[in-house]
Design a protein around this nucleic acid. Structure first.
Ligand code: SF4
Ligand code: SF4
Lengths: 162, 162
DNA sequence: AGCAAACAGGACTTCACAAGTCCGATTAGG
DNA sequence: CCTAATCGGACTTGTGAAGTCCTGTTTGCT
């Protein structure tokens, strides 16, 4: 069905919630896991898990100890969907012969399309990297699809790959 | 990991194998399941399963009876990756709030990004629909990515949706 | 007419990954 | 120095894909 992980979906929701609501400026945008859980409706442990992956990827910073929490580092205009996907679900590798090792595809020796998925993979990465979270937030879906050639964030592929 | 179904991968491999090798022109390009299994290295039952899905979607035609087999209907210049994905894995629906029902997303009532995935979904559909199997075959991956604005097949979205 | 080859369709079993849950380590605060 | 609140990682469970198999139907060949 080509569905991305539900964790990734929740990650976007949580990030949008983090940026949207800043009622207490005293904390400088620091939000705790239960706070975000209550704001989004996602169960707390799941939110915590998502935040862990995001902090490991460097998208959000974690402040430990009492009065701690999470704080997003970059404005969400500079966070692409590809960043969130790679942070939560790992690198984007549609087939088994891209670079996501551990499964050398048991028929790779007699496969005519061995490295050809790279083209599709790059196209998907570009499509996901061209959409920022800010676009998703204010997306009233104006046309049916934008001209598809406008790189909103235009982040290099090396960043996506790693 | 954002991996597409392995069946989809095999479907592309099988389609390429069907088009590539035509040693006996007497059959007009008709290939049997065990023949394709031997040519690709994929186990026969899996090949049969893939072919069934492809014939159900109308990408290949099936000739029953002895001396039967499968024959691809369109030249693979006119078959996009999105067609194969939708034929094998069903419609492309990244999140649970696109149109792939059966799972209304238990937090949809308090989700700020309810319909925003549609933008990303359309972008992915466009990216997958702009690449044909012929592009994959002769893809020596010339640059790193093509200008991303050239619709190779330019099939309408309605075809992707259904 | 009878037989063999090949597809159609479904059901079943197996298994890996994701989803969700839990408790321990760490740190700011009092 | 102690407490409290939080992050961090490890664990258990469930769902869905992947793969296999079987039976019925159709067609060509002998
Ligand atoms: S394209 Fe070929 S080698 Fe690559 S994962 Fe698919 S079957 Fe394996
Ligand atoms: S975007 Fe919101 S409503 Fe849509 S699937 Fe994700 S959590 Fe559910």
């Amino acid at each position: 069905m080509l569905r991305l992980s539900k964790l990734t979906d929740y990650a976007v929701v949580v990030l949008l919630a983090m940026a949207e609501r800043v009622p207490e400026p005293a904390s400088a945008g620091v939000r705790t896991s239960p706070c975000l859980a209550g704001a989004t409706g996602v169960p707390e442990p799941t939110v915590a898990k998502v935040l862990k992956a995001l902090s490991a990827a460097g998208l959000v910073a974690s402040l430990r100890g009492a009065r701690g929490g999470y704080r997003l580092m970059r404005p969400l205009e500079e966070i692409s969907v590809a960043d969130v996907v790679t942070a939560v679900d790992g690198p984007i590798a549609l087939a088994a012969c891209i670079e996501g090792a551990a499964s050398p595809c048991e028929v790779h020796h007699s496969c005519a399309a061995k490295g050809q998925w790279q083209l599709v993979n790059d196209a998907v990465c570009a499509a996901l990297g061209a959409i920022s979270l800010a676009d998703m937030r204010e997306a009233a879906v104006p046309p049916l699809l934008r001209p598809s050639g406008r790189p909103v964030t235009s982040l290099p592929f090396s960043q996506i790959a790693e």
